[in-house]
Design a protein around this nucleic acid. Structure first.
Length: 468
RNA sequence: GGUGGAGUGGCCGAGAGGCGAGGCAGCGGCCUGCAAAGCCGUAUACGUGGGUUCGAAUCCCAUCUCCACCUCCA
């Protein structure tokens, strides 16, 4: 079976065939760095990270371009309000996004191009659109001529005349109210640093043109997949496609859109408060559990966020990681995880438009079989389950033994010291248990529990872990 | 108004004509000194009303409710 993906443009699933066999070019709309990342942003990032991992696991070389839009109206507004240069404002949030991505194990893209670093490419593309009769200049700004491009609306299947007109459309002289800016003439009051020379005078790029220009520069005139959040479909993606195709380029062969995070059925937004900022969530929950929560719903379904979402994911993560830890202690680490065979059901699920929930069900099956094997003393079966579980989790970016999650950075010396202290307690408790002094044994366990250290007894002795 | 999406057991979530995915929580049992972890078992679920069918959560008709995009949004 081959990978099938749902194409948002045709609203149908189809076999995925790369333009160049074995290579996949993906353009992913990253952040407009105007504020701190929240878990909705990360949901999209994780969804496409799983896509990349699955494509690579299936033998493809993936070139993923994830842009940073570091100049736009909002950035200018917010920075001005804060009395800070817009460029430093943008970079600050770009860093926050970067930290959030890496905290959640999102693989770094092949390149992360910034809009402000590609002004010449945008200017060239705009000039080409004017030449071809699909754009026109007006008082130092340049607009895309929607009516000149018959296929406008193709991506979202909307007829241009059905669109609600923007509220501010009445006053200007655009040929059509739906025409959108490719180049915005410099306005008095805007910082000089937000202005670049162009054939139409000083100004700055419009919102959509950067993606068309950068996709072409790094992936070529035609590429395999364009991704982003569902809310970018219109107008952003529609306009991107219109620009690129009007310029004579094929652009994306397939579109993928990830759904958002909802609360009580409604889309998450900044107005709901800071509790869902990545920094806030990570302060209270383990990063792999957060990633698991974001990945465990199909990427095209809304992810309903409830107060128990992260607690549930934490419990699940503990179960998965617990099995891997216990199994590894018993049978040792497999030499190779990344090329180990994957269970057929798992492969089938992932090949079916990345059906992660179904894939997870297979992971749970293997974990249960593995736990049963451990209990029965069947090391061979336990070892087989361990490899399978780690290999499957690796596809989701959730292998507990990966460097990302096995954690051996700055905290290790503290953990080593703590381990020595806790082991002393565990030895004392073992002695108390040996003389059947249950009160003393329980007192030790309770004292450790009170500071967040959980004890598990097993035939091999006691094991401790930090409760998160 | 236009374009789409969704309503599944206490909760989260798959599935899409026929052996009731999976997880969390709950209940019963095994294991344990007691726990924890683990294992086994355990649910008259598919918005409502009709219809098609031997058989529907899955198809058809009607209907209710919710959400999103069309302005910035992952």
């Amino acid at each position: 079976m081959t990978l099938r993906l749902f194409d948002s443009a045709t609203r149908a699933e189809r076999d995925f065939v790369p333009l160049v066999a074995g290579h996949v070019g993906i353009y992913l709309c990253g952040a407009t760095v105007q504020g701190s990342p929240h878990i909705g942003h990360m949901r999209a990032a994780v969804a496409f990270d799983v896509l990349q991992r699955w494509l690579e696991r299936s033998g493809h070389t993936v070139t993923l371009v994830r842009n940073v839009t570091d100049i736009d109206d909002k950035i200018l507004d917010k920075a001005a309000h804060a009395g800070e240069p817009w460029w430093s404002w943008a970079l600050r949030f770009e860093r926050e996004f970067g930290a959030a991505y890496s905290a959640l194990g999102v693989l770094p893209p092949a390149i992360e191009p910034r809009a402000t670093g590609h002004i010449p490419q945008m200017v060239a593309l705009i000039a080409r659109l004017i030449e071809r009769g699909h754009a026109y200049e007006l008082a130092g700004s340049v607009y895309f001529d929607v009516r000149s491009f018959g296929a406008y609306g193709a991506l979202t299947r909307q007829a241009a005349e059905d669109l609600t007109l923007p509220a501010d459309a009445a006053g200007d002289d655009k040929r059509d109210p739906r025409d959108f800016a490719l180049w915005k003439a410099h306005k008095d009051g805007e910082p000089a640093t937000a202005s670049w020379e162009s054939p139409w005078g000083p100004g700055r790029p419009g919102w959509h043109i950067e993606c068309s220009a950068m996709a072409q520069r790094y992936l070529g005139e035609a590429f395999d997949i364009h991704g982003g959040g569902l809310d970018l479909r219109f107008p952003h993606h529609e306009n991107e496609q219109a620009q690129s195709r009007a310029a004579g380029y094929e652009f994306a062969a397939l579109w993928m859109h990830s759904a958002w995070v909802t609360q009580a059925g409604a889309k998450m937004s900044k107005s709901l408060g800071n509790g869902l900022l990545v920094s806030e969530v990570l302060a209270h929950h383990a990063a792999p559990a957060v990633r698991l929560a974001l990945a465990s719903v199909h990427y095209r379904s809304m992810l309903e966020y409830t107060p128990s979402t992260l607690d549930d994911a934490t419990a699940t993560w503990n179960r998965l990681a617990g099995f891997v830890t216990r199994a590894a202690e018993r049978v040792g680490q497999p030499s190779d995880v990344v090329s180990a065979d994957l269970p057929a059901g798992f492969v089938e699920a992932m090949d079916d438009d990345l059906a992660v929930p179904r894939a997870l069900a297979h992971i749970h099956d293997s974990v249960r079989a593995g736990n049963a094997a451990l209990a029965a003393g069947d090391d061979e079966a336990a070892a087989a389950a361990l490899v399978a579980v780690r290999a499957m989790l690796d596809v989701l970016g959730l292998d507990p033994m990966s460097p990302q999650w096995s954690g051996s950075s700055g905290a290790s010396t503290a953990l080593t010291a703590l381990d020595a202290l806790v082991r002393a307690d565990l030895d004392a408790r073992a002695q108390a248990r040996a003389r059947r002094d249950w009160a003393a044994a329980d007192a030790i366990r309770d004292r450790l529990a009170a500071v967040g250290i959980a004890i598990e007894d097993s035939t091999e002795g006691a094991r401790w872990s930090l409760e998160h």
